[in-house]
Each structure stands twice: as C-alpha cells, then as structure tokens.
Design a protein around this nucleic acid. Sequence first.
DNA 1: CTGATAAGGTGTCATAATAACACTAATATT
DNA 2: AATATTAGTGTTATTATGACACCTTATCAG
Lengths: 245, 245
Amino acid sequence: MNEDTNPHISIDCVIFGFDFEKLNVLLLERRLEHEDPSIAFCDQSLVGQHIKLKESLDDAAARILFETTGLTNIYLEQFYAFGAPDRLNKERAKIWLKSIGRDPAVQVITIGYFSLVNTNTVQVSYNPRHASWCDVKKVENLAFDHDQILKKGLEALRLKIKSEPIAFELLPQKFTLSQLQKLYEVVLDINIDKRNFRKKALQSDYIVALSEKQKDVLHKPAQLFMFSREIYKATKKEDFSFNFK
Amino acid sequence: MNEDTNPHISIDCVIFGFDFEKLNVLLLERRLEHEDPSIAFCDQSLVGQHIKLKESLDDAAARILFETTGLTNIYLEQFYAFGAPDRLNKERAKIWLKSIGRDPAVQVITIGYFSLVNTNTVQVSYNPRHASWCDVKKVENLAFDHDQILKKGLEALRLKIKSEPIAFELLPQKFTLSQLQKLYEVVLDINIDKRNFRKKALQSDYIVALSEKQKDVLHKPAQLFMFSREIYKATKKEDFSFNFK
DNA sequence: CTGATAAGGTGTCATAATAACACTAATATT
DNA sequence: AATATTAGTGTTATTATGACACCTTATCAG
C-alpha cells in the first residue's frame, strides 16, 4: 500500500449504467493466480480503493471513478458507510488481502457512492483490471461485502430517482421518451403505462422536444428530447416526482 | 485516548427530541478552562465519540447514545459520512483536541446518525458533560463541523418522516392528533390544515383511537391514540406518505 | 412494390387524492 | 356565569392517477 494512503478508509463506487435495455453495474475482475488450483480463484468486485491522506471523501470518489473509467464530471452521490468489523473476513477476502500486501485484521470502513453514466460513454478497457458491465438483476457473489453495498446503492438510486431529476444522467443528451420510460421501468423494476408516462413527461417544461428525430433505427423514428436543467431549476415548485404504479 | 479506540473513525449523533412545541436537539457543553481568558471558551457540540476497535458503526452509535442518555432501544439511523480533511481545523477545534490529548493533524472521518426520542424520557443530567435540549431553529456556531452535520441530519429526518412512520418515535406511546400534527409541522416547518390532517390520519388503520382521554389539561381534553406497528406492517401497500402543503 | 415487422404516437373517462374553508363542543379558570 | 383554550367536525372544487386500444410511420425481405 502506498505511503500516502489512508489504510482505514476506503470508497466503493456502485457505477450504474443504462444501455436502453437494462440497468448495469460496472464490476472489476478479481483474479488470484496460485499454483494450487484450490486456492486460485476469479470473481468480481465493485470499483473501490482506499482514500489518500488529506483527501476528502468526495474527491476520493471522483478520483477513483476517473482512474477506473477515465470519466470526469460524473454524477456521484454518497449513500452509506459500511463498517462491520467482519466485513473483510470471508476466506477469499483474507487470502486476497494478504496477496496484495494488506493486513486482513485492520478494520476498514468503506463509504459507498453511486454514480450514473451512460453505458456507451465508458471505455471498459480503460482500466488495467478487466472491467465489465453486468445486469444488476443477475449480479451475485461479489467479493467482500459488495453484494450488500450494491443492494443499498440500488435502494438509494431508486429513492433518489423518484424525487430528483437524475434519470437524465443515465441517458445521452438527446433521448426519446420511450428510452426515458424504459429507464424508469428497469431502475424501479415496474411497468409503466405508455400514455400516462408520456402525458406526465410532456406536461413538465424541462423535458424539451427537439426538432430532430432518431436515425438509423429500423422502425418509425422517434422524436428526440433534451432535459433542461435551467428550466427545471427555474420552474420547480419544490417537488419533482415520478411515481407510477 | 483509550487503547482500544479507533482514532480514525468517530460517530456523531444528532439526537432529536420533541417537547410538543418545537423540535430540539441534544447538545453537550464544550468548556475549555484556561488561565488566559482569551483562550478559554465554552460552546456546544453534538454528541459524539470515536468508535472502538472491532466495533460496528451501528453498535458504536447505540453505545454512544446509551452512554450519553442512559437510553436503550432507541431509533437510530445512519445518514451521512463526513470526511473533509479540514473538518477539525477551526482554531478552537485544534486547541480543544490538544487539550484532550489528541493530534489535530489526524484526519477523522465521522459517521452521522440521527436518533429520535421523546424529550421527557431523557435525563439530561445523566451525562457528566452538561447536556441540554436546544431548539433546532436557533442552534448555531456549534463546534467542529457540527452545524453542517446537524443540517444534513435534519434533511435526512425530513425525508424519512415523509415516507416512513418514524414520527411516533418522537412521541409518547399515547398521543393526541394535535400533538402528531404539531410534530409534522415543526419537523417539516410547514402549516397543516387541521381537518385535512385528521381526515388522513384517521383513514389509516395503524393510528388507533383509544377509549381514553387526556388529563390534567386546562381545556377540552383530547382523545388519545396509539401507533400500532403490527397493523402498519400488516396493511402497508408499500407506500407510507404524509405530504401536506 | 408490397406485405410484414416493429416501435411511435395519441384521448377519454372514472376514481382517488388534495386543498381550501368556519363553526360548535367541552373543559378549566376566574 | 362568563371567558379562555383547544377539540372536533363536512363539503366542495380541483387535480392527479390509472385503466384502456388503435392507427401511423419507418425499415426490411421477398
């Protein structure tokens, strides 16, 4: 571990991405090579690192996100701190920590952040450790306590997306209403009536219709829209809401 | 600092109390005696301590709450982690930390918890440091970064009280509808129409009318009610809500 | 060029939730 | 007996929600 690293505090980022079909999370491969094949293993973890000395939590989260994806100016939000003394005590975790020169007996508190990106904008190959997008509904058996962190991060995203206009962080700048609807459907794991959804979306002033249509699509092209943060700020009456049954 | 204390991680508890008139927060006096009166000072802080080695965050928060108030089985909820490297760098903070034998240069991450109690149930004299209830609307100039922690804790309480039945944690077991309404009003800093409030409260099954009335009150005595967690759990359709304009 | 495929786009109505609003009732105190 | 203080109560207009089905516009295959 580096000289200027704080060994007691880490950040784990739940990086959510939307590919117009499902909600994904960016996972890193954790591969332990060993001559004894009963010890070697390969599984996956969230994106995480220790913070540096004198580094704020937000700065650390942004740095880690940048070092993993090459992205800056990304939506990032802290959602929970995990500090169970046994959170690094799984057998594999101990083997792994020793293999990278860390003492498994040191209690590490990790702060969970979630971040939102459009899947297409991320160069998965950016990171030296193999990174890949995985359907959040299918993820399991992550390293350490990362299953629990992912679960809590997803709950935080669901709560937040119902009360603030963060859905647009997961979409490209120009999007169709069907894409926006699909996004709410996969994030909240619900079905939404198309006509009711469009009615509600269109009566907001901050989802602005462009005089432009989808291209290169094998059916009737849809109208494109943009989210205007300026209009949102200027018109919000204190309550954003996107509740559908 | 104790041998078994983790010097890197602390907990700060925003202990909210309701006295039927306003929302209070429990603060501890921070008094530094010094022969030079320009150095001596006395101000206030939230309730906080470092965690112990091998102690979980939730356990630490419950322990600190108990050690300060003598209370157990109290509603406690983690809301945010604070880790700015300069969060203990106010001049007074440095003097204070040195006076109690701690190194102000060590970065301490603190995890914020809020807890809810009925003001009357707390023996303020329990703690050796002078503790007192203060109107949250009037609190300012707290020690360290505690103003910021209180602000964030209050936001968390406001968010939570609108979507989960935690208001009852701030009331005695038997309460009147006017008390419940007043609680929502002071927590959310809004006015609520009495008839609309009562209509909504009474159409829930889990606020149960008792065949008992207020006593020792100098006006028409009000009917008493209880919150039934069993009925709440059995009947909730996934959405608790208390939204009033 | 025609038919198949695939998603885009549109309106009405019934029900439920919200918000505005003012007077009488019951108790304790003087 | 009068006063002070809070408890308690219904109606109506407006708005939001939820259920529901068909035609349109483009590409592609033959």
